[in-house]
Design a protein around this nucleic acid. Sequence first.
DNA 1: CATCCTGCTACGGATAATGTAGCGTGAAGC
DNA 2: GCTTCACGCTACATTATCCGTAGCAGGATG
Lengths: 110, 110
Amino acid sequence: MAKQESSGKVRGSRTGRPIMALLDLLGRRWSLRILWELREKPLTSRALRTACDEASPTVLQTRLTELREAGFVELGDGGGYGLTPFGRELCETFMPLHRFAERWRSKTGV
Amino acid sequence: MAKQESSGKVRGSRTGRPIMALLDLLGRRWSLRILWELREKPLTSRALRTACDEASPTVLQTRLTELREAGFVELGDGGGYGLTPFGRELCETFMPLHRFAERWRSKTGV
DNA sequence: CATCCTGCTACGGATAATGTAGCGTGAAGC
DNA sequence: GCTTCACGCTACATTATCCGTAGCAGGATG
């Protein structure tokens, strides 16, 4: 797999519409979840994996690389992944989702 | 997989944490994009496909089914997919993302 | 009946995710 | 020194998912 295209341009980046690039990046498996799990405090790669229901390290590593290249996540010296200021800002944007999800379930019963 | 797991429970729904189910659903390819493209007005399936860079109808159909089951999207009588009130609310949540994406690109140059 | 558009599906090949195992490194414990 | 352990990260075969093309049935229009 070479290295799973981790450094491949985000789909949609060629369109010149950054929102498309962002939606594509976030619309990959575990991307949103990773940001969510890091929302409070940095986690080691293994702690993150545990938090993500033992997702396979292959994808997590790929996503982490992508998110690092995008400038949302960083690997702190001394180990442990954390959000960059930019990543934190992005995460704030998603916060209302939490309450929304609660109301969503109560209405749909998923 | 029978029919592409379209009606399969969302991953994470078993955890009892609706946010996980939501993050998983939205973290599937084209989910976010579909909601985004429908943000203004309803689109026919083909117009939607055009808007989504000619993504394959197979996935779009799968996502649309999932989003319909989730109660975010509906197929209006007379044709054309549109957001439900619930879906519109979800879309509002994502709106700040647009401006964020602009700032994001100007800083990272992706 | 011949188009044209609708929502939707089949099928084969390509790509990405999963699950398990293990690498090299560095910090402790003995 | 040597083991032990956790760290970030990778290999590899299997499975799930996506893509691309083609085409269906149904309805409207001419």
